[in-house]
Simulated assay, not measured.
Amino acid sequence: MNKEFQKYSDITPEMNQEWEAKYGKTRLIDLEVQISDTETFNFVLRKPDRPVLEAIGRHAANKDVAAANKTLINNCVLGGDMEALNKDGEVYLEVLEQLNLLKHKAKSTVKKR
């Protein structure tokens, strides 16, 4: 699939079922980015898994923020209005922000023994 030219409306129920089977339904989110009253863009994102986080970490160790962001986008944006993501800075930043929030969704509790 060429995500470069894909639109959110091109995502089929079969694609969603495939993603749910591959990544787990609870690891997927639908994101709507509204940049004006008339412009809204939609995406299907997945939570980053350990290999993605490790790849991002390697780029971060080299202080290559652009490569870390590209790795996150390429691996965790499954589909959507890709032209807007590639060309609109507001959309790009909002998608990145939401992906970064997904990395920190887990909650933990420390219990004294």
Rank of each mutant, 00 (worst) to 15 (best):
Q17C: 03
A60Q: 07
D81A: 04
L45N: 00
D37G: 13
F41E: 01
P13M: 07
T71M: 04
Y8Q: 01
E18S: 12
V91H: 03
L96A: 03
S9Y: 04
P51F: 05
V95E: 05
L101D: 09
Q6I: 06
E97G: 02
K70C: 00
V91I: 04
N62R: 11
R50Q: 12
Y92R: 15
N75H: 14
R113G: 10
L85N: 04
S9K: 14
K103W: 01
V77M: 13
F5V: 07
Y23F: 15
F41H: 13
V91W: 08
N86D: 13
F5L: 11
K105L: 14
N16E: 15
L53Q: 12
R113L: 05
S108M: 12
E39Y: 08
I29W: 01
A68L: 07
K112D: 08
E39A: 10
V44L: 05
T26E: 15
A55R: 03
A68D: 05
V52M: 08
V95T: 07
Q98S: 08
D64S: 07
H104E: 07
E83M: 09
S9D: 14
G57A: 12
C76F: 01
A60M: 10
K3Q: 13
A66V: 14
V77I: 06
Y92K: 15
E54K: 13
E14Y: 10
N62A: 15
E39C: 08
S9R: 13
T71A: 10
Q17H: 06
A55V: 00
